[in-house]
């Protein structure tokens, strides 16, 4: 479309590959390779083994995976509930008030996650609510961090929703609660699942706030990966990273399946 002669095209594609492969494709491949490697002291890894995976799927590591999954699922569902409620509520308000709510819900994105972690730590290590040392402080921080994304994507979807549907429903005699339950939420379902997927992904990979907060008995996978690499066990770290990526992608894939089914109805 843009470049029409053959030589020019190949030159552009060549430059693209030179930039794209080492920067984006290579890192993921390297992690995958390392997770199977016994040694890596030369140009290429050697001594292929699945021992790292055996280690990564038992004991502390398995515990870390379930911790991450439970944290991510809980935080995403909470965030989805609060974010959806917030977005629907904001939509019903006059514009200036809606702006205020928009700003409030988007603020956690602009504030560094480490600071969110610190703030939660400071606030919930003292009365009236003591959560420090429990798993709930981690889940709470994750919820705060991902609620912003849930709010934003649901809010965008609510704006896109054709008001004609709600109006048709109201003209047929449906009260607002009935319209919400039978018309608006079902029509928002594809966006809600997309938002849930996004929240889950972010929570699965969350490291910064978690590092500030995690109690010894609630170590999510990213912290476990950090602990492994920090002790120089890079191959184990890689295997754990692959487990993290795979789990994330599997859940995303399942969510996408639900989403296409919801959109197809």
């Amino acid at each position: 479309m843009l470049v029409h002669n053959r030589a020019g095209k190949w030159a552009v594609w060549g430059l693209f590959l030179v930039l794209f492969l080492p920067l984006f494709a290579l890192p993921l491949l390297v992690i995958l390779a390392a997770s199977f490697a016994g040694h890596w002291s030369g140009a290429l890894p050697s001594g292929f083994t699945t021992a790292h995976y055996t280690a990564a799927t038992r004991g502390d590591s398995l515990q870390a995976l379930t911790t991450s999954l439970v944290t991510a699922v809980t935080a995403s569902l909470l965030a989805l509930a609060v974010g959806t409620w917030g977005a629907l509520g904001a939509h019903a308000l006059p514009r200036p008030l809606r702006r205020v709510l928009d700003a409030l819900f988007v603020l956690p994105v602009a504030v560094p996650s480490v600071v969110v972690g610190l703030a939660v730590l400071v606030a919930f290590s003292q009365p009236p609510v003591l959560l420090n040392g429990t798993r709930w402080i981690v889940i709470l921080a994750h919820t705060v961090l991902v609620t912003a994304f849930a709010y934003q994507s649901v809010s965008a979807a609510v704006l896109r929703l054709d008001p004609a549907y709600e109006q048709a429903a109201a003209s047929l005699g449906a009260r607002p609660a009935y319209v919400l339950w039978r018309i608006r939420l079902p029509l928002l379902l594809p966006s809600l699942t997309a938002a849930a997927g996004l929240c889950f992904t972010l929570s699965m990979g969350e490291l910064s706030a978690t590092m500030m907060l995690y109690p010894p008995d609630w170590t999510p996978l990213p912290v476990q990966i950090y602990a492994a690499t920090d002790r120089g066990r890079l191959f184990t770290g890689s295997a754990l990273a692959v487990v993290l990526m795979t789990a994330t992608l599997l859940v995303l894939f399942a969510v996408a399946r639900i989403r296409t089914r919801a959109a197809y109805r």
């Binding site: 054709d162 004609a164 549907y165 005699g173 449906a174 039978r182 079902p186």
Partner: peptide, 26 residues
């Protein structure tokens, strides 16, 4: 009863459920 330009049929409901919507709501 109201009918609008683009009909606004509920896309996630079968035709019969669309028609039954007002009856159920009432």
């Amino acid at each position: 009863g109201m009918v609008v330009q683009q009909y606004a049929l509920f896309p996630h409901m079968r035709v019969a459920d669309n028609v039954a919507f007002g009856l159920r709501a009432r």
